[in-house]
């Protein structure tokens, strides 16, 4: 464990807790894409298949349980909670899951480190995580208004993966044979997808004005 990875995990944890607290407190999911949240639940499910078979550390297991619990709770709130669900904008949140799930699955079958079920599922979760934010970014551009909690949520999500890239660079230099080029490529693609959002986020923060994404 290095400081970049710990900072990345904490940023990631903070992003999902910010979102969960927002939905729980104001009982609204305005501006939140259910599609993205469902994709994240799928990412964590396919990535943590080994949660009960391979014990890495208490930290690792606890964090996996928190990510699984929070992502499914958020999906439950938006789908089932009698008050929250009313603020879900299903007419705008129309991104089709399978446009992302199918290509990631096909890619994972052909490009992976080892052709076993768990390894293909793990690789699929990496590819899917890289693109899972797209429905959320599309929704933000459509609704054009971004309340600052949603803006912070997306920013923290992008920041966590950027910190992970620093972690991979650090591990590349400090640990022999630490080679996970699939992880690195997926991580860089994911962070680049946030890049334009980062640009507008910083612009709005610098000019102290409301965050507006171009149509």
């Amino acid at each position: 464990m290095n400081i970049f990875r710990l900072a990345g995990d904490m940023t990631h944890l903070f992003s999902v807790l910010v979102l969960l607290l927002k939905i729980h407190t104001i009982k609204s999911c305005a501006g939140i894409s259910l599609k993205t949240q469902e994709l994240y639940a799928l990412v964590f499910t396919t990535r943590y298949l080994d949660i009960f078979t391979d014990f890495i550390s208490l930290y690792n297991t606890v964090m996996k349980l928190i990510f699984l619990g929070s992502s499914f709770s958020i999906v439950w709130y938006i789908r089932r909670h009698k008050i929250v669900r009313r603020s879900y904008d299903k007419d705008q949140d129309t991104f089709r899951h399978y446009f992302l799930v199918i290509p990631c699955l096909v890619l994972a079958v052909f490009i992976n480190h080892k052709f076993t079920f768990k390894e293909v599922m793990w690789t699929f979760s990496l590819y899917l995580e890289a693109v899972a934010i797209l429905p959320q970014l599309v929704l933000l551009q459509r609704t054009r208004n971004i309340d600052n909690l949603t803006g912070q949520y997306v920013f923290l999500l992008g920041a966590y993966r950027a910190l992970y890239i620093l972690n991979w660079i650090y591990r590349h230099f400090t640990e022999p044979h630490y080679v996970h080029w699939i992880t690195w490529i997926a991580g860089v693609v994911q962070t680049l997808l946030y890049a334009d959002f980062f640009y507008y986020y910083f612009q709005s923060w610098k000019n102290n004005e409301k965050l507006q994404l171009p149509a």
Partner: peptide, 10 residues
């Protein structure tokens, strides 16, 4: 198999 596919990251 070359690199370990043991995934210790979240």
């Amino acid at each position: 198999d070359g690199q370990s596919t043991e995934h210790d990251e979240l």
